[in-house]
C-alpha cells in the first residue's frame, strides 16, 4: 500500500516487475485483440468530443495511449481545424489509425519537444499502469508535453469492470489467488465514488508537485492567474463522472 498525500492508495502490483506485468496483461492483449477491440470501440465518449470541440482552431494536441486513434479525426463538424497526434505502444492498433498522425511510443516516456502541444488527452489509459508511481509518471509526461502557458489536459479514467476486457484494475481491491497473480475482488459503488475520484486527483496533484507546479482548484474568475500563489501551476477546471468513467480537466498556467 502506498500513500499519496493523505489518501490511502491501494496499488495493484501483481508482479515484482510492473513493466513485465503490463507487457503481459496489457500490451500483448491489446495487440492480439486489436481488430476486435477496434470494432467495439468506435464511439467517442461525449465529454472527450466536447473537450476537443472547444479547442481553438490551429492548436495541436497529443492523444497519449491513442489505441485505434478514434479521437484523432475530431471534431467532426470541422475536420482539420485542430490536429491531434496519437501515441501508442501497440503496432496493430496504430496500423488501424494510419490515416491520422500516429507515433509508436510509450506513455511513460516522451519523445516530444517540451511544451510542444497546446492540449493533451489521456483516455482510458491510466488504469493500465500497474503502480501509482507509474501513473504519476504518465501524468507528468502529459504536463511536460503541453505549453506551460496555456496547455489544456483531459484525463479520463475507465472505472468499468466490463468482464471481457483484460484491464489492470484501477480502483479495485486485489486478492492473491493460488496462481500467485492477484485478481480483482468485488467492488461497491461506494468504493468507486470515493476511491477513483480521490486517487485520480491525488495522482494529478502528486505529478504537479514533483514538477514544482502549484495546484489550485478553480481560480476565482475576478482574480485569475495573477492572484494565484506561485509562478506556475495547474488549475483543475472540472472533474466528475461520466457513466462509469471519472474525468479531470485542467490547464497549465504561468505568470
Amino acid at each position: 500500500m502506498a500513500t499519496l498525500g493523505h489518501a490511502k492508495v491501494i496499488t495493484t502490483v501483481v508482479d515484482d516487475d510492473p513493466a513485465a506485468y503490463e507487457q503481459r496483461y496489457v500490451h500483448e492483449v491489446y495487440d492480439r485483440i486489436a481488430y476486435h477491440f477496434s470494432s467495439t470501440r468506435y464511439k467517442p465518449w461525449p465529454l472527450v468530443s466536447k473537450f476537443l470541440f472547444n479547442i481553438p482552431t490551429g492548436w495541436v494536441g497529443l492523444d497519449s495511449g491513442t489505441g485505434n486513434g478514434k479521437y484523432l479525426p475530431l471534431p467532426t463538424d470541422n475536420p482539420g481545424r485542430i490536429w491531434t497526434v496519437g501515441l501508442d505502444r501497440s503496432p496493430n492498433l496504430l496500423s488501424l489509425a494510419r490515416t491520422a498522425g500516429v507515433v509508436r511510443g510509450d506513455v511513460l516516456e516522451g519523445g516530444w519537444r517540451r511544451g510542444a502541444f497546446d492540449y493533451a488527452i489521456s483516455i482510458a489509459t491510466l488504469h493500465h499502469l500497474a503502480t501509482v508511481d507509474r501513473r504519476v509518471t504518465v501524468v507528468k509526461r502529459l504536463f511536460e508535453s503541453v505549453s506551460p502557458r496555456h496547455g489544456r489536459i483531459l484525463i479520463y479514467v475507465w472505472a468499468s469492470t466490463d468482464g471481457q476486457d483484460v484491464f489492470v484494475p484501477w480502483v479495485l481491491q486485489v486478492s492473491t489467488a493460488t496462481d500467485g497473480v492477484r485478481h480483482e475482488a468485488s467492488r461497491t459503488n461506494e468504493d468507486r465514488d470515493v476511491r477513483t475520484d480521490a486517487r485520480t486527483c491525488q495522482i494529478g496533484t502528486e505529478a504537479a508537485q514533483q514538477m514544482g507546479l502549484k495546484v489550485s482548484p478553480r481560480l476565482a474568475e475576478a482574480e485569475g492567474v495573477e492572484e494565484a500563489e506561485g509562478k506556475e501551476g495547474i488549475e483543475i477546471i472540472a472533474s466528475g463522472w461520466e457513466r462509469s468513467n471519472y474525468y479531470i480537466e485542467l490547464w497549465r498556467w504561468q505568470k
Binding site: V60, R98, T99, G111, R113, R114
Partner: peptide, 12 residues
C-alpha cells in the same frame, strides 16, 4: 504517419 507536422513536434 511521419509528416513534417509530426516531425516538428518530436525530440530525442
Amino acid at each position: 504517419m511521419v509528416r513534417l507536422i509530426t516531425h516538428n513536434l518530436l525530440a530525442c
